[in-house]
Design a protein around this nucleic acid. Structure first.
Length: 192
DNA sequence: CCCTGATTCGC
DNA sequence: GCGAATCAGG
């Protein structure tokens, strides 16, 4: 498969929507997420925002080209044909001032309103569901990547751990994380 | 282990 | 230009 116009457009679109590289790759087909990421970079639309986790750590190895300059930041010049004295209006992109741009794809109706936050009914409902399909694992079966959310009464046979796969570093699965970490406003006025 | 994106480098 | 391999992180 090659990067046809259409495919590139799909890529741009999806990437712009915040889709992950793997999702895009799956959608396109015939390419891996690596290919997608590579293409994204070559297209120059890598950073979606400022909050990228890892975006700059050029050293540590495999790059002996240690420039004494702390800031080798060659901004891509818009190739102007002639030396036309056309002043660029405001193409300056200062590394400062970064307003968070919240992209809300049309298909995602979830505005997280952190107002009077109770535990969202959503989350609770989700937990209910999850408990249905939980793996019901025992204590000994708990691993680093199994949800450690206890279900039932420990004093009875009716007790197990969720056991669903956790996402990242968290002790619980996605659903249980939702209720495990209470907004703290909810538990606040729950005093006795 | 699952996932994410970033980077490198042979092709 | 491409993308697998690798790296770095959650």
């Amino acid at each position: 498969m090659s990067w046809t116009d259409e495919r590139v457009e799909t890529l741009k679109k999806m990437w712009g929507e915040g889709q992950s590289a793997s999702q895009i790759a799956k959608e396109l087909g015939g390419v891996t997420r690596n290919a997608v990421i590579g293409k994204v970079h070559r297209l120059g639309l890598s950073n979606r925002n400022s909050g990228a986790t890892a975006a700059a750590k050029p050293e540590a190895k495999a790059k002996p080209a240690a420039a004494p300059k702390p800031e080798p930041k060659p901004r891509p010049m818009p190739k102007t044909e002639a030396a036309r004295p056309v002043p660029e209006p405001s193409t300056e992109v200062k590394p400062v001032a970064h307003v968070r741009k919240q992209i809300i794809p049309a298909g995602q109706p979830l505005p997280p309103q952190p107002s009077a936050n109770e535990i969202s009914p959503e989350a609770l409902a989700k937990v209910n569901e999850v408990e249905k399909k939980s793996k019901k694992i025992s204590l000994m079966e708990l691993t680093e990547r199994t949800c450690k959310w206890p279900v039932g009464d420990p004093a009875t046979e009716d007790f197990w751990f969720c056991g669903l796969p956790v996402q990242a570093g968290k002790p619980y699965c996605e659903a249980h994380v939702g209720v495990a970490f209470q907004p703290m406003s909810a538990r606040r006025d729950r005093r006795r």
